[in-house]
Structure formats: C-alpha cells, structure tokens
Amino acid sequence: MNELGLHFNLLISAILFCIGVAGVLTRKNTIVIFMCIELMLNAVNLTLVTFSVYLNNINGQIFVFFVMAVAAAEAAVGLAIILSVFRNFLTVESDEVAELAG
C-alpha cells in the first residue's frame, strides 16, 4: 500500500470519526446516538487496519479483532439499557429522559 492510500484512509477515517462525534452531540434519539458511536468505532477500526497494513505489522489487525468483540458486547448491554429506559419512560428521546435535575 503506498503513501497515498495511507493518507487518504486516515483522512477518511478522521472525517468519519468527526461525523460520528457530530451525530452524538446533535441527535436526540438514543438509538441513533448509539449508532453514531458505532460509526466512530468503525472509523477507528479503519485507522488501525490502515496503520497495520502500512507498517507491515499484524498487531493492528489483532487489535481490531478485539475491538469488534468489545463492540458486540457493548451493543448488547447498550441496547438492553435502552430497552430498560423505554420501559420506564416510554420514549427514547434524550431530552424527554430527564427526570434527574440537570
């Protein structure tokens, strides 16, 4: 992989990460916020694999393997939390889930 590929992929993943950040800060639906977090994690995966291929080092791809497993576990717990919130509040909009002050 040549340098052009490296820089382009890094730029793309940086932009995707920032799009994810913007989504988390802007959207109100909790499920969409969580999807934007998954987008951020995907951007980081892209960074890691790009570096791994460029540096001829397998560790980056192993790291991605573990990150994917962690993301799966996180999705399970996160969606269960969202379900529990829905049962109590009957909504998943983050501005309506505001019983605690502030």
Binding site: I81, S84, N88, S94, V97, L100
Partner: peptide, 12 residues
C-alpha cells in the same frame, strides 16, 4: 426511572 436514566447517560 432515575436508575434507568443514569444507566443510559453513563452508557452513552
């Protein structure tokens, strides 16, 4: 309700 909300905020 407070517990669910705290879990959600902490998680996100």
């Amino acid at each position: 309700k407070a517990s669910s909300e705290s879990a959600m905020k902490y998680f996100i």
